[in-house]
């Protein structure tokens, strides 16, 4: 169980309102990702749900119970922190057992649950070490272990992968996804990395300045971004935006076209420009095109084999059916 409902929740620090009135429902078992640029209020929102910050007004309920003023310890949620927040003076075993000890479980039950969590997370060999003797990935797993032994109503993750190196991050991403598949528990995951959001989420909540810009599945956000901000934030490399005459042709104040929806060639197309930088990833190549007369730079994805160089003049053909149109306020025109 773990259905979390936020109604008209606000948060102010002094005179600054970081979260304007906000409504959000997180269904039981859902993997929800809060994503947005730094300072968008996503961590604050998570901490409000955790109870580590008081809401300024509004209501938070967990499984139908009003939890607005319930202290964090009593909300039945578990959290994995960015710094892992392991207890440095306790062994891995004691770290994982700590929430169970606080819940006054009997020792046999504690041992059983710690052992099972350790085997799930491949930590069995490290149970008697201190956190200081573990690698970053292992610490991360201990933090997760400490969260899962409680069998919480929901897991809260606060940028859990940002302290890991790139290779480990991909591995842990998969592990957390698998964990969700197995446990089917509600998870709320905060990140600024849209790749993490796209790959892991059932539901993405895009935040900007405390406001929810859009809620939806990864593909909904990709295909039908509600506004220019979401369109620019979701997808990598970023969507190209073109204003002016070209946009007016489509009856919009500006249009957006993703790099993967433009074809590059040397023999004709409606647009043209000069290759500035080409990034070869092997499977794909990204060209950054200047002097198109449309925008400073147009980014285009092409097949890995396409070999234009710096200074080549190329022609671009956008796929007309996937052009996103936005009005003067940046809102999507259906």
């Amino acid at each position: 169980m773990g259905r979390i409902v936020l109604e008209k929740v606000t948060k102010s620090f002094g005179a600054t309102e970081v979260i304007p009135p906000l409504d959000l429902t997180i269904e039981d078992g859902e993997f929800t990702v809060f994503v947005g640029p730094s300072g968008c209020g996503k961590s604050t929102l998570l901490r409000l749900i955790a109870g580590l910050e008081d809401v300024s007004s509004g209501q938070i309920s967990i499984d139908g119970q009003d939890a607005t003023i319930v202290p964090p310890a009593k909300r039945g949620l578990a959290m994995v922190f960015q710094s892992y927040a392991l207890y440095p003076h306790m062994s891995v075993r004691k770290n994982i057992a700590f929430p169970l000890r606080m819940a006054k479980l009997d020792q046999a039950e504690i041992d059983k649950r710690v052992a099972s969590a350790a085997s799930v997370l491949n930590l069995s060999d490290y149970l008697d070490r201190r956190p200081g003797q573990l690698s970053g990935g292992q610490r991360q797993r201990v933090a997760i272990g400490r969260a899962i032994v409680r069998e919480p109503a929901a897991f809260l993750f606060d940028e859990p992968l940002s302290n890991l190196d790139a290779a480990l991050r991909v591995g842990m991403r998969l592990e957390i996804s698998e964990l969700h598949e197995r446990l089917k528990t509600t998870m709320i995951y905060v990140t600024h990395d849209q790749v993490e959001a796209m790959t892991m989420a059932d539901k993405i909540v895009v935040l900007r300045a405390g406001n929810i810009e859009q809620v939806g599945s990864p593909l909904e956000l990709y295909h039908t971004p509600r506004n220019q901000f979401v369109a620019g934030f979701i997808g990598s490399p970023k969507m190209n935006f073109i204003a002016g005459d070209e946009a007016a042709k489509h009856g919009a104040a500006s249009i957006g076209i993703r790099p993967e929806h433009i074809t590059v060639s040397d023999d004709g197309g409606p647009w043209s420009g000069v290759v500035s930088v080409s990034e070869h990833l092997g499977s794909d190549t990204f060209f950054h095109i200047h002097d198109t007369g449309l925008a400073d730079t147009i980014t285009v994805r092409a097949d890995g084999e396409v070999g234009f160089r710096h200074g080549d003049r190329v022609h671009l053909t956008p796929r007309d059916d996937v052009i996103h149109r936005f009005d003067r306020n940046g809102l999507r025109i259906a």
Partner: peptide
Amino acid sequence: IPGEILEAARMDGAELKEEILYVLTPM
């Protein structure tokens, strides 16, 4: 002492007394 560790203790169900006794004091 990182504040997140004390928050973690709170999330783990520790009351103020337990937080001070088991987490803060040893550190």
